[in-house]
Structures are given as C-alpha cells and as structure tokens.
Design a binder for these strands. Structure first.
Lengths: 95, 95
DNA sequence: TTGATAGGCAAGTGGTTACTTGCCTATAGT
DNA sequence: ACTATAGGCAAGTAACCACTTGCCTATCAA
C-alpha cells in the first residue's frame, strides 16, 4: 500500500497515469512522445522507463509484451481503496 | 494536490493519520506516546512534530491552540477526491 | 546480414527528505 | 520567583530518489 502512495507522490508519474487513463496500451516511446508534446516534460526515455517500473511495482500499471513492443495499461484497482483507509474511521495495520 | 500524495508517501505519517482517525484533538506528546506504544515507532518528538507540520501543510491535519497545548485533528476532505482523478477517465492538469 | 528500432542494465550524480541535536520560548503549577 | 511541561527553531547528517550517461540485448525490416 505504501508503494502506491510513493508512486503517486511524483508529478511525472501522475502525468503518466493521466496519459494512460486517456489511452491504454501505450509503449514506452509513445508515452515519451505524448508526455513531452502535451505537458512539455523534458524527461528522458530512461527516466520514464524507471517511472513505469515503479508504477508497475505499485500495481498501478500492467504490462504486456508483444514482439519488441511492451504495452502499458493503467490499473485503477489500487486507487479504488486508497481514500477508504482514514475516512471511515477504520485504521488498518501496514505501512 | 501533490502535497497530499507526498504526505501520504511516508509510513510514519500514515501511522499518525491512523492515530488521529481513532481519536481527534490530540497533542504532539499524546501522539508521540501512542505511536511508540502502539506501533513501536522510535521517532523523536521533533520528528513527529515535523511530520505534523507537513500534514498540516497538505491540508490533512488541522490544528487548534489552547494555552500551551496544540490539538491536532484529522481532515479527510483532501482524501475524498484522491482516487477520483484517474478512475473515471478524466485526467486533470495539476501536478 | 546489416541497420534501425524498442527496450533494458547499471553505475554515478545532485537534490530532496527524514531525522537528530542543541538550544530557545511560552504556558502552567507550586 | 522557580520549575516543569508543551512546543518551536535551526543547523547538520545520512539515506533516498529522480535523473543522467553509456553500453548492451532483442526484435523486425531491407
């Protein structure tokens, strides 16, 4: 659960999620092109790649290999429980 | 909005929110005692104090002065919109 | 096979951040 | 007044994180 919050803590990663929310099944290069075009982000391919790794580790992005392409898809399930933790007065363990 | 995510990215701060969700209007010392007792956290008073500052800046905690006491209260309103951003396919700007 | 494309690996760097340490202010009790 | 309590301020440290750099692997098209 902490991984999800850490993943969301970075603005570039939130832009990536925005992009994937608009269009699923994008490759790393597609994401790079669209991020720089749409939000004037200057991040390199490797930077985006590392962000995607982290997002996948947090369960927010799922990937699918096809030949030399790797497609990335947004998985919103971890987000659907986030706010629940403190709102309904029911703290859990973890961090 | 990024401040909220950054605030939630730290496990100690999430414990603090847990604690405030259980009981509102706690002072810094109360929070310290309960955190160390309940979760075996070893953080010092100053560490917790700095976390509370950050949580207040993120809008997740509201404070109230009373004599030499400062009471801290959980404000869940920023949490109530968090998950909405990507779930309903409507990216916003920000970061 | 050659070259181009899509992506991965790993070490290094600069800035951020969580935490400590030491001292200071203010309120309250005696 | 004196002491203890609740909290604040600020500099320093160590770990972490985002990002770069350079090179490598794998797939596909010609």
């Amino acid at each position: 659960m902490g991984d999800v919050f850490k993943a969301l803590a970075d603005p570039t990663r939130r832009y990536i999620l925005d992009e994937l929310a608009e269009r699923d099944d994008q490759t790393l290069f597609e994401i790079c092109v669209r991020l720089t075009g749409k939000y004037q982000l200057t991040s390199s391919r490797q930077a985006i790649s590392q962000h995607l790794e982290l997002l996948e580790a947090a369960g927010l992005v799922r990937t699918r290999r096809e030949g030399r392409y790797k497609f990335h898809t947004l998985d919103t399930r971890p987000l659907e429980q986030i706010a629940e933790r403190w709102i309904r007065n029911k703290p859990q363990e973890n961090p």
